[in-house]
């Protein structure tokens, strides 16, 4: 294989990895804030993809233009899920971990069923968009524009996240994560911070959804595929670590691209999963996780 072909593979892997990081970071953020794993995370992605598809169809605007609306919508959806479901799951004393897992799993199945009911199990795709189908020729290396756009969006989102920690809200978030009881004493409403945290997490995965909708098929099960990758990414990077999600996302993208070179395409996930297992075997809390 030529060096050029290798660079081609690594560059596509890197771009996809940045998108994986964007999908995963919301999950990690929510866990870091309140120790809850949202097993409906992939379904949030699916909702965002359908929302993008629907808005594009309805307004005939480009997916990039409707993206802010979808992200806003997802913020509300995330906050709503916290208020309507997770808040109650956190109140239980008996089997707390189990209740969190299964209440969000139930939600995931409910959302999948809802998508099937309203949109049918058919595969859909956005036929025309500014970026769809176009590639960039960079000295003989071909990169699809939607993926480049996704990579850039992801970098921008991570930059914005690192700035948020300097704002008042970022400080409130950090304080709530440190000590949920003490923040109440300084007048921070814990429930409000959690709701905004869920909104933010859903908005981030929603942003990834608006990107994926440009070049990926949209169907009720699409969340399951990306959901599993998101859990692996977060566990690999360390639950709760934003930086870990970025690094792990890139690693996952690169490993997936390399695996696809060596193994048959149906087995491309094996490389990621094996790497993940190898890492957690030596570092049970992931690369950047706190124990």
């Amino acid at each position: 294989m030529t060096a050029q072909a290798l660079i081609q593979v690594l560059a596509s892997g890197l771009l996809m990895g940045l998108i994986y990081a964007l999908i995963a970071v919301g999950l990690s953020l929510i866990f870091g804030l309140m120790d809850v794993v949202n097993f409906a995370h992939g379904e949030f992605l699916m909702i965002a993809m359908y929302a993008t598809f629907g808005l594009v169809l309805w307004t005939t605007l480009d997916p990039i233009v409707v993206a802010p609306f979808v992200v806003g919508l997802m913020f509300c959806a995330g906050a709503f899920v916290y208020v309507a479901v997770v808040r109650y799951a956190m109140r239980t004393k008996a089997n707390a971990g189990m209740v969190q897992i299964f209440s969000t799993f139930g939600l995931a199945i409910l959302i999948q069923g809802g998508a099937q009911y309203f949109f049918t199990p058919d595969y859909r795709s956005i036929k025309t968009s500014w970026l769809g189908g176009h590639t960039l020729d960079l000295f003989g290396i071909f990169l699809p524009w939607p993926q480049i756009y996704g990579g850039l969006i992801s970098i921008a989102a991570f930059a914005a996240l690192s700035l948020i920690s300097r704002t008042d809200f970022g400080k409130a978030l950090e304080a709530t994560r440190e000590d949920q009881g003490a923040v109440a004493l300084v007048g921070i409403d814990r429930n409000k911070v959690f709701a905004i945290g869920w909104g933010l997490g859903a908005a981030l995965v929603g942003l990834a959804g608006t990107v994926l909708a440009i070049f990926y098929y949209i169907h009720p099960q699409v969340g399951a595929t990306f959901g599993t990758i998101a859990y692996v990414t977060v566990a690999l990077g360390g639950f709760g670590s934003v930086f870990g999600a970025l690094v792990a996302g890139i690693i996952v993208g690169l490993v997936e691209a390399i695996t696809a070179l060596i193994l048959p395409p149906t087995m491309k996930a094996v490389g990621i999963f094996a790497l993940y297992l190898a890492v957690v075997f030596f570092r049970p809390s992931g690369l950047f996780g706190k124990l």
Binding site: V99, S103, A108, I109, G113
Partner: peptide, 23 residues
């Protein structure tokens, strides 16, 4: 017919029981 109604009921049931009767 693959309508998804069964999944809606299944998912809702899991949620309700997990939340209402954690034991």
């Amino acid at each position: 017919s693959g309508s998804g109604l069964d999944l809606i009921i299944y998912g809702a049931l899991i949620m309700v029981v997990a939340l209402a009767k954690p034991e």
